[in-house]
Amino acid sequence: MISLLIDTSNRPLSVALNRDGFTLAEINTTVKKTHSATVMDYIDKLFRMTELKKNDIDRIIVAKGPGSYTGVRIGVTVAKTLAFALGTKLYSVSSLFVVAASYSKEGIVAPLFDARRGNVFGAVYNMKPDSFTEEVAPAHMSLKDLQTKLSSYESSVILLDGQENISANLEDFVHTVPRISLIEQFETALEEEDIHSLVPEYLRISEAERNWMEQNKS
């Protein structure tokens, strides 16, 4: 089974082609470049590197968020359209879980993305060699909240892209960026999606809607 995997949720970008869960080719970057300009170009490169044909693809797996709103939209749009155009199956995975899987170690891990003003998108997973349990589902919360949740575990590790500003507020974390090629060893993290109805998991309504709801509470 050939899978095309796509993660453009934050500054790091990760795309890969896997055969039966093993990586044939992957491109991972953490440079500050717009994913809109690069992601299709890199996917094209993967096909050239592997000499695979587009119709060889059996499924597409996309990191659906949370993350940068624009970033997750680019990944989801590309994944949806490719799956529609090629007639392949479409799967989604939490962008936070991609980071947890990329850490490749066992134990309690808390991947998080900076959501500004002391807030984060975060989750807590208990990682085992080929399986995991979700201890805290992906959510928008304050960093303090997440730290409180972690304090109930004997030991835990925060996973974060060290280039994110919020890293300055953390005493201890492990710099981890997504490598989506590693995700297929956790089949239960993947969710099969209807191509047309897949939307990003923003985990937050837009600011305009939030303000509108405030004003129209009554």
């Binding site: 809109s36 299709m40 996917i43 749009t77 590309v78 949806k80 359209t81 490719l82």
Partner: peptide
Amino acid sequence: INAAKAFSFAH
């Protein structure tokens, strides 16, 4: 733009 690129690439 990303939908157009994906579609043009696929076909």
